[in-house]
């Protein structure tokens, strides 16, 4: 780890004053579970780390009839145990339970979970976000088993590592981003981006902006997450599907289906949504939606198996949501 300065501001105002407007100079630390590792791997080498532990309001979770607003510094365990979250959002509960380590749940925050860097093994061993060696992309001819099958035609081949990203997309959540006195609300699917260059990041956050809260609209929609993991305990999912829909006269409406770990961002499965919209949710329609979800996939040599996982995850998430 490179040496850096450290500060623990007591308020957001103080925090903003400490942040650079350029990536690479300062990093915001929430729980640190990813950042500390990323710094050890020299994935990021900030000159200053700004810890948000001292900004108490960021940890609050407020529930109303219309929405649950989760402070970005709320720990994953606090979110997991929140009564309103448990009552309304099984999709969130399943995704957090999937991060099976109690140690991770105590320290990891929801904001940090959304902003963690990709786990791509080329990225983590010094080949940059676009996984290159001497200018040549490593993933296409290399070990692509955990890489993207969607949205991988550009230079970004990694998958978004976030477990909650697809859930928030499926649930239509908004993310509150603050910069000084300015605040903006960004829909979850617009929060994530495929970086245009290696210097960019995987979210629209600017280096001197802070993700302060996640707002989950309470709509009564059915929702669920299904994860395919290799190990039964702590492991990175191979593929996840998060779904949300309203049952209107037995038919699924406002269907939202988002996939995780298959693209550089959470991936909205538009064809699958369309396939199910207006249908009853049955084994057959869920399977059809699953089959539709792989439309447009462009797997590499070693990750074609993920198509099968996508089909299954979508089907099972839809069936779980109706159960």
């Amino acid at each position: 780890m490179k040496s850096f300065e450290y500060a623990r501001p007591a308020s957001l105002d103080e925090a903003f004053a400490l942040l650079s407007e350029n990536w690479g100079e300062t990093e915001i630390m929430a729980g640190g579970t990813d950042l500390v590792t990323a710094m050890k791997q020299y994935v990021t080498e900030p000159n200053r780390v700004v810890s948000l532990r001292g900004v108490a309001p960021l940890r609050a979770i407020n529930a109303t009839d219309a929405a649950i607003e989760i402070g970005a510094m709320a720990t994953l365990r606090e979110v997991l145990r929140h009564d309103a979250v448990k009552a309304q959002f099984p999709a969130v509960v399943t995704a957090i339970q999937g991060i099976a380590s109690p140690q991770m749940l105590s320290r990891g925050t929801i904001g940090g979970e959304l902003c963690q860097r990709p786990r791509c093994w080329y990225f983590r061993t010094g080949h940059g976000l676009f996984a290159k060696e001497n200018g040549e992309a490593l993933v296409p001819a290399g070990d692509s088993r955990y890489h993207a099958i969607f949205g991988n035609q550009g230079e970004a081949h990694f998958v978004s590592p976030s477990s909650l990203g697809p859930v928030l997309v499926a649930l239509g959540a908004t993310l509150r981003i603050q910069k000084g006195a300015d605040s903006r609300d960004v829909p979850a699917d617009a929060f994530f981006q495929t970086p245009a260059t290696e210097k960019d990041r995987e979210t629209v956050l600017k280096p001197n902006e802070i993700l302060t809260a996640i707002v989950l609209p309470v709509s009564g929609a059915k929702n669920a997450t299904y994860e395919v993991r290799h190990r039964h305990g702590l492991d990175w999912p191979y593929t996840t599907a998060s779904v949300s829909f309203v049952l209107d006269g037995g038919k699924a409406k406002n269907v939202r289906i988002a996939l995780g770990h298959v693209a550089p961002t959470p991936w909205v499965a538009k064809e699958a949504q369309a396939a199910l919209e207006g249908q009853e949710v049955t084994e057959a329609t869920a399977a059809a939606a699953g089959a539709a979800a792989v439309a447009g996939a462009t797997p590499f040599d070693k990750n074609g198996y993920k198509l099968q996982l996508v089909k299954t995850a979508v089907k099972r998430a839809l069936l779980a949501a109706t159960a």
């Binding site: 040496s3 850096f4 300065e5 450290y6 623990r8 004053a17 400490l18």
Partner: peptide, 8 residues
Amino acid sequence: AAPAVVGP
């Protein structure tokens, strides 16, 4: 009441 920056 700006916070102190310590280190590196």
